[in-house]
Design a protein around this nucleic acid. Structure first.
Length: 103
DNA sequence: GATAAGGCGGTTT
DNA sequence: GAAACCGCCTTAT
């Protein structure tokens, strides 16, 4: 939907794309940065859509696997939560030991 | 501390 | 314009 809320999805994608290597962000944090901290749910939806859209378009995919829940759980993933966890543990050597980091 | 239910915002069809 | 969907969060039991 391209209206005034277009900023939201845009922000979400931007923030997620800005996540540095080895770091993870929570949906809530992203949602908060996007404008609505309560829109964490929408964030996940947007990410999934955007990810699929990227793959479908053959463009570079975003780091959607670096996005986790506030509980420290990976949450969900279009390609499977296991893959997401694997990727996170592989590229997250320092802080997020044993689980994941927040913020 | 863990599990259950409710509510919330945004997108897509 | 309204209903359904989603990768959630928060509060309550």
């Amino acid at each position: 939907m391209k209206s005034r809320k277009r900023n939201f999805s845009e922000r979400v994608i931007l923030v997620v794309s800005r996540i540095p290597h080895g770091k993870t962000l929570t949906y809530q944090e992203i949602a908060k940065r996007a404008g609505n901290k309560k829109a964490a749910r929408a964030v996940g939806n947007i990410l999934s859509r955007y990810y699929k859209d990227c793959v479908k378009s053959g463009k570079k995919t975003i780091q959607c696997h670096r996005v986790i829940r506030s509980d420290g759980k990976v949450g969900g993933y279009a390609r499977g939560e296991k893959e997401k966890i694997k990727l996170l543990q592989k590229e997250t050597p320092p802080l997020a030991r044993g689980g994941v980091i927040k913020l």
